[in-house]
């Protein structure tokens, strides 16, 4: 009887924990662009999927590319997206509709730094609908993450406790139900339905916060593994895989000339072996495109929205003339 009571109590406690976590998820996890992205890849058909890091997120406007090429696209890049994330994003998107092309935006720093817990992958995982891909993603990545990220999804947003009122309000609104991106617009940036983040020109010091320089010694084998997996997946599905590196400020490139040149050389050789087209826009003639630091939000190379629009035009021409 005593054991039964104890077991019963433990079960009640577990149910209580699950209930509290679910309520916390609802009231603490904010409405994010990941929700819209996941909705869009399930409900729309796209010719091109753009995957990669925050440089791609701020630098590629699929609408401009579509205007020039007639090929629709969606930007699936996010801050802290490693190749492992890109691979499962592509798989999830392709499970709804097979695209014609995948454009992988390559930031060399991501190939030489271990995956950390600071990216947005938790948001995307949380918003990803329950599917075979989600399960595979769980075993491939989430299992290695801090247990709190999985057991308590609200944990990454606990700094937003004071915004509970706003979060609850927006989650009960029509905007939320209709996946409206207007909610994310502020003085710094706005979120486009195509998945791109448009950075507004604002005054201020330009940072070098998350800058990781290329050093071949530090190359992470997992990046190669997942790139090769992505290549195999694309080949199997008849999808064309293209790799690009978006422009960075000329000042940054001059400051670390050798490292950028080494990275370019390494990837040219690597992608040639992989038989994948690689366009490094830092070593191409971009016509009148201005690569001065003034055109970027920071020294790392996140473009301002208008710069991104100009670059997307160049990207469109490159994809068209391939």
């Amino acid at each position: 009887m005593r054991n039964f009571k104890r077991t019963f109590f433990v079960v009640i406690i577990l149910i209580f924990c699950v209930a509290v976590t679910n309520v916390a998820n609802y009231v603490i996890i904010p409405y994010s662009y990941a929700r819209i992205t996941m909705h869009n890849i399930a409900s729309e058909e796209h010719d091109i999927l753009y995957v990669g890091s925050s440089h791609g997120l701020c630098g590629i406007d699929p609408d401009i590319v579509e205007e020039n090429t007639g090929e629709s696209g969606i930007n699936l890049c996010f801050g802290g997206e490693y190749l492992r994330d890109s691979y499962y994003m592509v798989k999830e998107a392709a499970s709804h509709h097979t695209p014609k092309k995948i454009v992988y935006e390559l930031d060399p720093g991501y190939w030489v730094s271990p995956e950390n817990q600071n990216g947005d992958f938790g948001r995307l995982y949380y918003e990803m609908p329950l599917s075979k891909t989600k399960c595979q993603y769980f075993f491939a990545k989430m299992l290695d993450a801090d247990f709190r990220t999985i057991i308590f999804p609200w944990y990454n947003y606990r700094s937003q406790l004071l915004r509970i009122k706003d979060t609850v309000k927006i989650k009960g609104s029509q905007e939320y139900d209709e996946y409206d991106p207007a909610y994310f617009n502020d003085i710094v940036e706005s979120y486009r339905k195509s998945g791109m983040i448009y950075r507004n020109r604002i005054e201020g010091e330009k940072s070098f916060d998350n800058f990781v320089l290329w050093d071949e010694k530090n190359i992470q084998e997992i990046s190669k593994t997942y790139f090769e997996k992505l290549k195999v997946f694309c080949d199997e599905k008849g999808i064309e895989l293209i790799v690009i590196t978006t422009p960075i400020p000329r000042e940054t490139q001059e400051m670390y000339e050798q490292q950028y040149a080494d990275a370019d050389q390494y990837f040219r050789t690597y992608f040639e072996k992989q038989k994948v087209e690689y366009y490094n826009f830092n070593y191409m003639d971009l016509g009148g495109f201005n690569r001065a630091l003034s055109e970027f939000a920071d020294g790392e190379g996140h473009m301002y929205g208008d710069t991104a629009e100009k670059f997307s035009g160049i990207l469109a021409n490159t994809l068209k003339n391939q």
Binding site: R6, F9, V10, I13, F16, C17, V20, P114, E115, N116, Q117, N118, D146, R148, I151, F152, W154, Y155, N156, R158
Partner: peptide, 27 residues
């Protein structure tokens, strides 16, 4: 009592995500 002990464990369990930092070096 057992019940109170369990509640203590639950409290600690919830303190970990509320007050615990994101590990700087991935744990």
């Amino acid at each position: 009592p057992f019940a109170l002990r369990c509640l203590c464990y639950v409290a600690i369990l919830f303190i970990l995500p509320v007050l615990g930092a994101v590990p700087v070096t991935s744990g």
